[in-house]
Amino acid sequence: MEMRAAEAARRWLAGQGVSQVRDGWVSDAKPDVLLTADQVAHSLAGDVFAEDLDAADRLHLAFGLLDLLDEYWVTCEIRIANDSVEGPLPADVLWDGYRLRLEADRDAEAVTYSLWVDWFEDHTTSATAFAEALGNDIDHVVAERSEALLRRARRVLECSGPVPWPVKEPAYRTAVRLPALHPALFRGLRASFHDLYGDLEPGAALALLDELDLPTDTPHLAELRQVLAAGRRNHHRSPGVWDEAVRSRS
């Protein structure tokens, strides 16, 4: 599906006079000027949502552009379109698109960064975004354990720091049942403490941390346990406590 979406986006770009060459992209207007994928995304991704197509087809085309360019800015234009006067975008297509790319066996940095800074950090969207990305079907993920589902779970857990603790705690507790998710869950707990908008409840987070089957020399494990045991909720609300924990381990 991703390949078909990318090819549709490639055809659309050709219609805008932009084509791919060995080292980047060129436009018909300036064929001697090499463009980066980021430049193409900033120039044209927003235009997808002005096409004479229904909302679902526009969104499919935007995801194809994301597959082709692999640029975070495409996800920004998706979010902008969702929040526009013509939005919201069809939720089933939107979140199917995210889940598919989170499960894909390829780099997903643009998608996970989008989840983290645009959906999870926004308190008006974090609960819905986390539920759609993982929370709604975490039981199925843990039961089926397919590589694709585990890939999605790992990626979402690792960038879930800003999600409110009451929203993500049930999924965290379910993820504990599957050791294959323990490293990602640890990174999620660590991000919940370190992220600027990270959120956790120290006692509950410590209880989860103690259930994880991790090597005792896992970097930052001891420090995280120490700050949680001290009742600290967030690195930025308690300046210096992490450094103190690091010094105490040296």
Rank of each mutant, 00 (worst) to 15 (best):
R4L: 14
E7G: 00
A9N: 05
R11Y: 12
W12H: 08
W12N: 02
G15P: 04
G15T: 10
V18T: 14
V21E: 15
V21H: 13
V21D: 14
D23L: 10
V26P: 01
D32A: 07
V33L: 07
L35P: 00
D38H: 14
A41F: 07
A41V: 06
S43A: 15
G46M: 04
A55D: 15
A56D: 11
H60A: 10
L66R: 13
D67Q: 09
L68F: 04
L68T: 02
L69P: 03
D70I: 04
W73T: 09
T75K: 06
T75M: 15
C76N: 15
C76T: 14
E77K: 09
R79T: 11
N82H: 15
V85C: 04
E86Q: 08
G87A: 09
G87R: 06
A91R: 15
D92G: 00
W95C: 08
Y98P: 00
Y98G: 00
R101F: 10
E103D: 01
E103G: 00
A104T: 11
D105K: 07
D105T: 11
D107A: 03
E109W: 13
V111F: 04
T112F: 04
T112E: 08
Y113E: 15
Y113W: 14
S114N: 13
S114G: 12
F120G: 02
E121L: 00
T124F: 06
T124Q: 14
T125R: 13
S126I: 00
A127D: 13
A127W: 01
A127R: 07
T128L: 14
A129C: 06
F130Y: 15
A131Q: 15
L134M: 05
G135Q: 07
D137Q: 00
V142H: 03
V142C: 08
R145I: 10
R145A: 11
S146F: 10
E147R: 01
R152S: 01
A153R: 01
A153T: 02
V156W: 04
L157E: 05
E158R: 12
S160T: 07
P162D: 03
P162C: 03
V163K: 05
W165S: 03
V167F: 06
V167Y: 07
K168V: 05
E169V: 08
R173L: 14
A175S: 08
R177E: 15
R177W: 09
L178P: 03
L181G: 04
L181K: 04
A184Q: 07
L185V: 05
G188H: 09
L189I: 10
R190V: 03
A191M: 13
S192V: 01
F193S: 02
H194F: 10
D195Y: 11
D195F: 09
L196K: 01
Y197L: 12
A205Y: 06
L206Y: 02
A207H: 11
L208P: 03
D210A: 04
E211F: 01
D213P: 00
P215L: 13
T216I: 07
E223A: 06
E223Y: 05
R225P: 00
G231A: 08
R232H: 10
N234Y: 10
H236L: 14
G240E: 15
G240H: 10
V241S: 03
V241G: 04
S248F: 05
S248C: 04
R249S: 12
